[in-house]
C-alpha cells in the first residue's frame, strides 16, 4: 500500500442466497481522487457500498482504509474511521429540520454524554453551540442554508440530495461515498452537483461516486471502475474505460444480457 492510497479493496465477495453479488472485487482509491464506480443495474455497486460502510458483512475479502482495516458490520465505527455515505434513494430524517439532520451527522465527533447532557455543563453548552454553527456552515457550503429550519421532507428533491451530502460531510470524512447523487436531477441541478463534488475534492476529501449519468462520471472522475455481474471488469482513467471492449459489451449488451 503506497502512501497515497486511501482505500484498498481486496477480493471482496458477497452472496445473497445463490446470487453472487460481488466476486473477488479488488480496487484501490487514492487520496484526493474522485473515483467513479459504474456498471449496469444489478452489477453490485450498491452492495459494494453497503459492504464498505459496514451495513453488510462481506463473505470474504477486506477493506483497508487509511492503513487501518475497516471493521465490517459496525457502520458507526466505519464513520469514525472517516468513511461517510449517502443513499441511492435518499434517507433523511424526514421529520427533523434540515439543520438537525446535519447536526446528527456530527454525532460521532462530539464528546457530550448523557450525564453532561442532563447537567448542561459549560463544556456541553459550548459543544452544542459549535455543533450548530458548524452545521449551518456546512449548509451554506452546499448552498441550502436558507432551508435550515424547514423539515427535511419539505425540501425539494435537489435540496434533499444536497442536505444528505451536508449530513455526510458533517461526519468529517476522509472519503465521501455518493450513491447515484444525480439520479432524477435535471441538467442544471446536475451541473451544480458537479461543482459541489469538485469543491469537496478541493477541500481534501476523496470521493467515491456511483453514477449512471455517463457524462457526469466521465467528466468528473479521475479514475473509474466498472462492475458487471459482481465482477470488476476494468479500472482505469475515463478515456481508457470508455474504449474498453468489455465495458462496451456490458453496457450495450452483446446479445445475452440486457
Amino acid at each position: 500500500m503506497t502512501a497515497h492510497t486511501l482505500l484498498r479493496v481486496s477480493q471482496v465477495g458477497k452472496a445473497f442466497g445463490g446470487v453472487q453479488a460481488l466476486k473477488d472485487v479488488s480496487m484501490t482509491l487514492n487520496r484526493g481522487e474522485i473515483y467513479g464506480l459504474i456498471g449496469p443495474n444489478g452489477a453490485g455497486k450498491t452492495t459494494l457500498f453497503n459492504c464498505l460502510t459496514g451495513l453488510y458483512v462481506p463473505d470474504s475479502g477486506e477493506f483497508v482504509f487509511d492503513d487501518q482495516p475497516l471493521i465490517s458490520s459496525a457502520p458507526d465505527k466505519t464513520v469514525r474511521q472517516g468513511v461517510a455515505r449517502t443513499f441511492q434513494n435518499i434517507r433523511l430524517f424526514a421529520n427533523m429540520t434540515a439543520l438537525e439532520n446535519v447536526m446528527v451527522g456530527r454525532h460521532a465527533r462530539l464528546r457530550s454524554n448523557i450525564i453532561s447532557d442532563i447537567l448542561r455543563t459549560p463544556f456541553n453548552r459550548r459543544e452544542e453551540q459549535t455543533t450548530e454553527d458548524q452545521a449551518l456552515q456546512l449548509m451554506r457550503y452546499v448552498g441550502i442554508a436558507h432551508r435550515a429550519h424547514d423539515l427535511a421532507k419539505h425540501l425539494s428533491y435537489g435540496d434533499q440530495r444536497r442536505l444528505e451530502i451536508a449530513r455526510a460531510l458533517a461526519t468529517q470524512p476522509k472519503l465521501l461515498c455518493l450513491d447515484e447523487p444525480a439520479a432524477g436531477m435535471n441538467a442544471n441541478e446536475t451541473d451544480g452537483l458537479r461543482q459541489l463534488i469538485e469543491m469537496i475534492r478541493l477541500d481534501g476529501i476523496s470521493v467515491l461516486l456511483i453514477e449512471h449519468d455517463v457524462q457526469l462520471v466521465m467528466g468528473l472522475c479521475d479514475r473509474i471502475a466498472v462492475l458487471d455481474y459482481g465482477e470488476l471488469i476494468c479500472e482505469d482513467i475515463p478515456s481508457v474505460v470508455q474504449k474498453h471492449p468489455r465495458v462496451i459489451e456490458a453496457y450495450l449488451g452483446s446479445g445475452a444480457h440486457a
Partner: peptide, 26 residues
C-alpha cells in the same frame, strides 16, 4: 434537556431512519 442534546438527536434519528442513523456514526 435530553430532547435538545446529542443523545436526544440520536434518538430522533433512530426513530426516523435507523439505517441512516447508523450511517451518521450513531
Amino acid at each position: 434537556r435530553l430532547e435538545r442534546s446529542r443523545v436526544g438527536r440520536a434518538w430522533a434519528a433512530i426513530r426516523e431512519d435507523e439505517i441512516a442513523a447508523k450511517a451518521c456514526g450513531i
